[in-house]
Design a protein around this nucleic acid. Structure first.
Lengths: 208, 208
DNA sequence: GGTTTTCCGATGCAATTGCAATGCGAGTAC
DNA sequence: GTACTCGCATTGCAATTGCATCGGAAAACC
């Protein structure tokens, strides 16, 4: 048997180059040759690891999604009170530094791509439900804590009192809000300060 | 002097074709020939009305923005109570029917484009501040009304009591939320029902 | 050490791209 | 009626695109 190479590593390296190009010049500028040049490899190698451009795009799409997911995992300080924990999550979704801005631009480009090519997106993108459920649980536990009951994030028990919106709707809203604020920051429709203020305001109401 | 034609109408017709192509296949698929074919004209005519592809894209970018703006103007029922008025606005931003879904896909594609080519976007996109200010005023007037004072939407007076988040942050949040929910609907991350529920929940808290 | 199988660089090709150049027809001003 | 100018269709071209093909080189297994 011949040379043993880490296929996944090679593919990821190429996908990273693709993401960089997409973040800098948009998906329209993504071509086999340009991606290969950005990755510092030959176009032949790109062809070797991806049967065609579409599969390369699909892999990169998954790669951005995983990158975001990874950052969320890393920023999971379960020791903090629920509200601060959720705030930590959502802040990670805002493009507040150059690294996340680049990532956000790539993610935005891929969102547009996914909206049009829903077939590849559906097969590759992760299910957003678990994250929503986790945040909803944190909201529930925070409210339970405020009324004296011990919060049990995993139990999914229903709070009796309604001192705020339905936790699930609040979770969906918080995530969508972070995403919307993120794209508005990227398109300069919104300053980072206003975005953080709006997010904090929404956090305050969601947690009662 | 020769034939007299409505330049703006021609350009708009071409831009509409571009938007249709972008909504169906994404901005990557936009080419002079395809847009011309979609518009039912020759590529020569497209070249006649747009010096190059970039200026055509810029014009189309402005066209989508104006289309959204027009729908918002049309859906401005000032007779309704403030909360319902704002709800009417925000609902128009959600892609709940096929027409708005198509428009939303095009808008999403252009957002990604604008995030990367901020120069053209900045020169062409409208200022989001007036809309935010209007919504913030509606929030203020609704709260004033609830404490017995007459609401004066244009006055911008500051409410003394804090029975909710800062109106400006609430307005920024509501608009960003609608945008985020809209893209999540388009990417199938979120059902329309969940989106409407999340939006209504947020409306309830914003208006106290 | 030979074999074999994977890796991947190089080249070629048909299709498509944005755009320039050319030409002409039609309609208006005179 | 004539001339002139704008409106636009056609054609051509260099560059780029995605992809197929070929060839060699390097490494693991016998």
């Amino acid at each position: 048997m011949p040379k043993k190479v880490d296929h996944h590593a090679r593919r990821t390296r190429i996908a990273d180059a693709l993401i960089r190009v997409a973040a800098r010049q948009g998906l329209e500028a993504v071509s086999l040759r340009l991606v290969a040049a950005e990755a510092g490899v030959s176009t032949g190698m790109v062809q070797h690891y991806f049967r065609d451009k579409n599969s390369m795009m699909a892999f990169a799409l998954r790669a951005v999604a995983e990158r975001v997911q990874d950052r969320l995992e890393r920023a999971r300080p379960d020791a903090l009170p629920p509200k601060e924990s959720v705030r930590g999550f959502l802040m990670q979704l805002l493009p507040l530094d150059t690294e996340r801005a680049e990532e956000g631009k790539a993610a935005l480009a891929f969102q547009a791509h996914a909206a049009v090519h829903s077939d590849v997106a559906g097969a590759v993108l992760p299910d957003p439900a678990p994250l929503r459920a986790h945040i909803a649980d944190l909201i529930r536990s925070a409210r339970a804590g405020r009324t004296g009951q011990a919060g049990r994030p995993g139990a999914g028990g229903k709070a009796r009192h309604a001192e705020g919106p339905d936790p699930y709707s609040a979770a969906v809203g918080l995530l969508a809000l972070a995403e919307g604020l993120g794209t508005q920051i990227l398109t300069r429709e919104c300053t980072p300060e206003d975005a953080v203020a709006a997010l904090d305001a929404q956090l305050d109401t969601a947690f009662g």
